[in-house]
Simulated scan of single mutants.
Amino acid sequence: MPSHNYLNTISLTPRKELQTFVEHRRVFNLNNCELNIFESYEETYRVPLTFNDFVITSMMRGKKIVHLFEKPAFTYLPGETAIAAGNEPMVIDFPEASELNPTQCVALAIASGYINDTLGYLNNHYNSDPDIKHNWKLQFNQYHFNNDAEITDIINKLIRICSSSDTAKNIYADLNLKELLIRLVQSQHMIQTASEASEISNRTRLHYILNYIHENLTGKIAVDTLSRKAYMSRNDFFKWFRQQFGITPLDYINSERIKLAKQLLSYGSHSITEVSYRCGFSDVNYFVRLFKKVEGITPKVYKDLSCMRID
């Protein structure tokens, strides 16, 4: 399905300047990172690729099939991001690449010392809740995900900064790299905690709150109720939740409801109105607007595309 959060397009390399039709590479070096722009113009398979440092990649055009971490291969499309550790071998297929339909991907390699310093700072200054008992760290059990709006905005900024001639670009890049790392860690922490919540809901206050949200998605979930269950004031609860995940409680509730709506639209015979109410939305028009904002298409278009795919 289409993703709403595409990166801004980058001009393709003029044909006369291409050194290869497979993974032609442009490189921009800064103090703590290296921005690579890869383009491929012909169908090919089993292309190896390895970076010395931790790398954040995002698709901009076309389609790849990526083999990573000895896991099943995944289809890599625009609006998606993948991460890999330094010296982690990747193997990439380009089943649809051509001069008329090239692939384009950005890869941001970040120095390990910079990552360690940033995570160390976060652990020293933003790990004050003894109930959570987790460290700020990058994990690789979750390595392929859709861009959210914040991640897309940061990567767009970093592309502009790295490719500019601004003499202060290392300063600007440093600020945006830190935010990007924080967003990625928060996203991974949210996915990990949510996956554990149903089985170990009483381990931490955070597991308990997420499990309560999941069990009550189809009904009304008041933030005041959540804050009481967390034994916090409303304001403190908002700050605490956002510090853990980078989003508000309402954003999280809505994102989980949209996931449920996609399941119902894909595999059920429910109408758009029925799906809206079953996912806890009392206003169908609001549901349609939110769905389009998140997915880039309306629930009806999503449902029609899902039916075509199943047929």
Rank of each mutant, 00 (worst) to 15 (best):
N31F: 03
I10P: 02
Y114T: 14
N123P: 03
S40W: 03
D174A: 12
H67S: 06
T9W: 09
I154W: 00
Y302M: 09
R289H: 11
N5H: 07
N285C: 09
I155S: 04
I209A: 02
I171E: 06
L177M: 00
C279L: 04
A82G: 13
I155L: 11
R278F: 09
N29F: 11
D224C: 13
E256V: 05
A111I: 09
P2W: 01
S195L: 06
I115K: 03
P249T: 14
K133A: 13
L184M: 12
S195H: 02
E39K: 07
K300C: 08
F54I: 10
Y286D: 07
N124Y: 15
D251V: 08
N101G: 14
N235C: 15
L122F: 04
Y6L: 10
C279D: 06
L100A: 11
V284K: 14
I213M: 09
P95D: 01
P299I: 00
I10W: 01
L119Y: 01
N147T: 01
I209S: 00
A84H: 14
R228M: 15
F238D: 13
M190Y: 10
K259H: 05
E256W: 00
L217S: 01
F241D: 05
P48T: 08
L18C: 07
D311F: 07
F287C: 02
L265N: 03
E42A: 06
T20N: 02
K262D: 12
N235K: 11
Q139I: 11
R205G: 11
Y286M: 06
R26M: 07
Q142L: 09
E295V: 00
M60T: 15
Y114I: 01
Q263C: 13
I110H: 03
A73C: 01
N127D: 14
L264M: 12
I297D: 06
D224P: 06
N124E: 13
I171T: 13
Y302I: 03
L108W: 05
K300I: 08
T118M: 05
L264K: 02
I132L: 14
G296S: 03
